[in-house]
Design a binder for these strands. Structure first.
Lengths: 113, 113
DNA sequence: GAGATATATTGACACTTGTCTATATAGATG
DNA sequence: CATCTATATAGACAAGTGTCAATATATCTC
């Protein structure tokens, strides 16, 4: 897992977060950095199983169905939701661990001095 | 403070995260959703006072000075760094509280069911 | 004031992104 | 098989983004 802090505090400026880790973390953070996706996530978070199908979200979100599919695809590719097919419906479910990973990666230690 | 979870779990899909809160949170998350800025933040996080001047970061980051200034501006406008002028130098310092706010906003509760 | 240094701003450019409409695909049901 | 429903994909478009070179601004020092 890539965190902003790596091992511990070195007194010199070094490129502590490697390019590949920075790219990966940025990709996951970008997936949650959109107002529509945040509202979508918020809706899922309020549902008992942390999941919903595309049609319900489309109705509640006020954007077109292809747009909702697009946003779910972005979230799925970032590992933030799981996709479960149930007949004609497709249910997307939040992966709490993925969000916890993000919060850990964003943790900044208390000021040293 | 805007969190993805608002009060508690309602059993119906509602637009729980209001537009203004979603916009604000997205803006702050976007500020950290860039690989270059993540590396920059990582560098600051490893320094004793959580701060550095533009020139040191420019040297270590391998991008142009205007680009570093631009990234610091984005971070400052999102409230993630403070700006402190010291003669010709300008020091930017991480605001740990702002990062903690982000991690709180991204928290997803454990599955209800 | 003149020159040197550190930072910010401007303008340009390629690239990405969010949204839509139109259409395709897949599964259920008659 | 035909049709309906749910979802995904393709294509288009406007808006936003990351970067740089060039230039402006501000501060220090002589």
């Amino acid at each position: 897992m890539s965190t902003i802090m790596s091992a511990c505090c070195e007194p010199t400026i070094t490129n502590v977060l490697h390019q590949a880790d920075a790219d990966d973390l940025a990709r996951r953070l970008k997936a949650v950095s959109d107002p529509t996706r945040l509202k979508l996530i918020s809706m899922l978070a309020h549902l008992p199983g942390l999941e919903a199908c595309v049609c319900d979200i489309t109705e509640a979100l006020g954007v077109s169905q292809p747009t909702v599919s697009h946003h779910f695809k972005v979230l799925a590719e970032a590992g933030l939701v799981d996709r479960r097919k149930d007949g004609t419906w497709v249910h997307y479910r939040l992966r709490p661990q993925a969000f916890e990973d993000l919060t850990i990666a964003l943790s900044i230690p208390a000021p040293v001095a």
